[in-house]
Design a protein around this nucleic acid. Structure first.
Lengths: 249, 249
DNA sequence: CTGCATCCGCCTCGATACTG
DNA sequence: CAGTATCGAGGCGGATGCAG
């Protein structure tokens, strides 16, 4: 075997250099030579990852972003979008040729954030609390929740699809081969259809309410093959056995 | 097939409620009923995810965290740690029974952040720039980088291990069966040993420098089976063909 | 009306000093 | 060593103004 020797170069580790640092654009940055720190230099400011979340579900107008991010303030949204565009995460697209700047959408680089964002969303599901009066809920967040909940190890062994109606949003899970994907819009011939409101949807996804309880409460409607319902719940890691106690958080 | 009907309940979506909101502990929060927003209510403040990064590589003392997070300031670190402890992401551990509170470590909940954090770190690798004079580098960040770079689809078909010496840090990748894991400390009998400094290690990981170039520059030393070196580079998504141009960022 | 820019009060952040 | 106390600077949140 091989004996290790120190390399010819000595460490170039930069010593502790206290004091706040600025990144290229004059912004505040971590100045750590590390992938995570670099990612947070771009995504770590307040609201930024929530902007990315919105754009992960398709292009959005400035006003739509404002409406779905209550509290952000117009200057902040403009600054975040400009920053993301400058760094190649987001681009502006004109629907009409007349340069009326209609929408923002993620670039390929931005799309590559999907697994990391879904991972954070899945982790955060354990921390959603009781629905408070001041909480905002949007039905299209249910799409992200479903995408994050899909357990690749529990994909049913045959093709089918489950359709979801969350308030006005319609999307479905398509099981094809050994993969399950979340897709916007209705399914061709779903084996199950779940209909509910956005708040209940998140409560089910977070485990605060079981599908069983939600049905009893009249807040969730399940139609189609009962076996498909069970497979769908299993795919999403939802309780199907009984009532299941609400975890004490 | 099934025809969809609106559920008995109407949407309980909370309307736009402008104004800054506070979360439980009196802190500023997003107040969105969504997994990602909940995650960011805990992890989204400045420095928090970098604290988690440090703890992902094992327990750390307060002073060690301070030293590896230049610029954080003592009050911020104390506040972040207290907040994470309160929310069950981190716990304090006593090495001695004498309650001298020696270290912080992640709870199981905190450990579940690993895939999301690694995902962000991998994404951010494309954004690490030229090494600047004010940049901090730490050799143990190389461990995280390697963990993030492992491509599960490119695991060699037989068991072996690759050892890395990054400044004073020693860790290895263990390929067993069809999985590859990054493990702290030396390997039993590595088929390859790479020795380098922390800055070069990150530059290689980010694609700014190829292993080939680094060897020529005398900043990287590779020992052991040449075939193993190629397999290791392939596993980590590193260029082995030739010099490969440095991407323009 | 949409898509920002400007201004202002406040709270978080970053640095230093200080204490058990 | 492990934090707490304090204070100035600046990022953030909210209201308003304005151009296309």
């Amino acid at each position: 075997m091989i004996v290790v020797a120190r390399p010819g170069i000595d460490t170039e580790t930069i010593r502790y250099d206290s004091g706040m640092q600025k990144v290229a654009g004059g912004k505040r940055g971590y100045h750590q030579y590390c992938g995570l720190a670099s990612a947070l230099d771009i995504l770590g400011e307040r609201w930024t990852l929530l902007v990315v979340r919105e754009l992960l579900m398709g292009p959005r107008r400035y006003s739509e972003l404002l409406a779905d991010l209550p509290g952000i303030g117009t200057n902040l949204l403009a600054e975040r979008l400009k920053f993301l565009v400058e760094h190649g995460v987001v681009r502006q697209i004109d629907v009409r040729g007349t340069g009326s700047r209609l929408s923002y959408e993620l670039t390929g680089t931005g799309q590559r954030l999907r697994p990391a964002v879904l991972g954070l969303a899945q982790w955060g599901m354990d921390f959603v609390g009781e629905l408070a009066a001041e909480d905002t809920v949007r039905p299209h967040w249910g799409f992200l929740a479903v995408e994050a909940m899909i357990d690749p190890a529990r994909v049913p062994p045959f093709d089918e699809s489950y359709e979801f109606h969350v308030d006005s949003e319609v999307f479905h899970i398509a099981v094809t081969g050994d993969t399950a994907r979340a897709i916007r819009g209705p399914a061709a011939s779903p084996t199950m259809i779940a209909t509910t409101d956005a708040a209940t949807f998140v409560q089910i996804g977070s485990g605060r309410v079981t599908p069983f309880i939600a049905v009893i409460q009249g807040k969730l409607k399940l139609e189609g093959d009962a076996e498909a319902v069970v497979r769908c719940c299993d795919l999403l890691g939802l309780e199907t056995t009984a009532t299941a106690p609400v975890p004490p958080r």
